[in-house]
Structures are given as C-alpha cells and as structure tokens.
C-alpha cells in the first residue's frame, strides 16, 4: 500500500519536472529563478522517493516522454498558472501518501506535501493570484 502511494508521488514528481521544462521557457527574471529552484526541488524529491521505493522492493515509475498539462502555456502569466497547478498536483499526490505511510515514509511525504504547498503559494505571490493560500492544499 505504501509503495503504491510512493509510486504515485514519483509519477507526480516526473510530471512536475516535465511541466517546469515547459513553463520555464516563458519566464524571465525572478519567476525564472523561482522556476529553476522549484524544478531542482522536484528533482531532489524524485530521487529521494525513488530510493525509498527501491529500498522497499517496489518498482520505479518511468517518466513519460510528454504529459498533458492542465494549463495551456502561451505567455508568462499562463506559465505561472501552470506552475501553481504543478505544485498543487504534486502536493495532492503527497497528501494522499500520508494515509498510506508511517514513520520515515510519512515524514518524507509530509515534508514533500508542505514544500509543494508552500511553493504553490510562492507562485501565487509572484503571479498575484488571490487568495494566496487555500484551505486544503493539493485538494483535487
């Protein structure tokens, strides 16, 4: 059960990394820096959760060559909306992993959930999307 939840989170991290590859091309300055930082955080989490899945004897999920993105990106504003959606999507996968994990795996899931939720909020601040915070981060 816990490995399946971690595999779903890994798939979400792959999707987020892909999405930042699309969004980053439309961003400059502060937003581009934030996109680069966020993408690095997702890569770190992807590697951490992959190690955990392997340690538990689970099978890794490969990244897809392309993903259907929830926002059509045509400019900086839509790229930042995509970034919010990417973070909320990853946050949701990690939130679902909470109930399926215990101990160190839950700690991993909780830290990842919080980090994605905060990054979504940072994107709302940069893009001036209000309200800046939501009651249930990662809710689908």
């Amino acid at each position: 059960m816990s490995v399946e939840a971690l595999r779903a989170a890994l798939a979400a991290e792959h999707a987020a990394i892909y999405g930042y590859g699309v969004a980053g091309a439309y961003l400059n300055g502060e937003a581009r820096t934030l996109a680069r930082q966020a993408e690095l955080e997702h890569r770190d989490r992807r590697d951490a959760v992959a190690l955990r899945i392997e340690a538990a004897g689970g099978q890794l999920v490969a990244a897809a060559p392309a993903y259907t993105l929830p926002v059509e990106v045509t400019d900086a504003a839509s790229a930042m909306r995509l970034a919010v959606a990417l973070e909320e999507g990853a946050a949701g996968a990690w939130r679902e992993a909470l109930g399926a994990t215990v101990d160190e795996e839950r700690r991993l899931a909780l830290d990842a959930f919080i980090a994605c939720a905060v990054m979504a909020t940072r994107w709302r601040e940069v893009a001036n999307i209000t309200p800046l915070t939501v009651t249930y981060p990662g809710a689908r």
Partner: peptide, 29 residues
C-alpha cells in the same frame, strides 16, 4: 500539526497534514 500528523492514525493523516501545509503557507504570506 506536523508532529500530530506523524503520530496520527491513517484516517486522520491527510487532514492533519493539510492543516500543517496550510499553516506553512500562511507563514509564507
């Protein structure tokens, strides 16, 4: 909220984790 989430039974972990995440976002703003 963070420590309560880590100690929570499975059925409460998502809700309490959401409380922790929302608080971290509040601190951000």
């Amino acid at each position: 909220a963070r420590s309560a989430c880590l100690a929570a039974p499975a059925r409460l972990a998502g809700l309490i984790g959401s409380m922790a995440a929302a608080r971290a976002c509040h601190l951000e703003v």
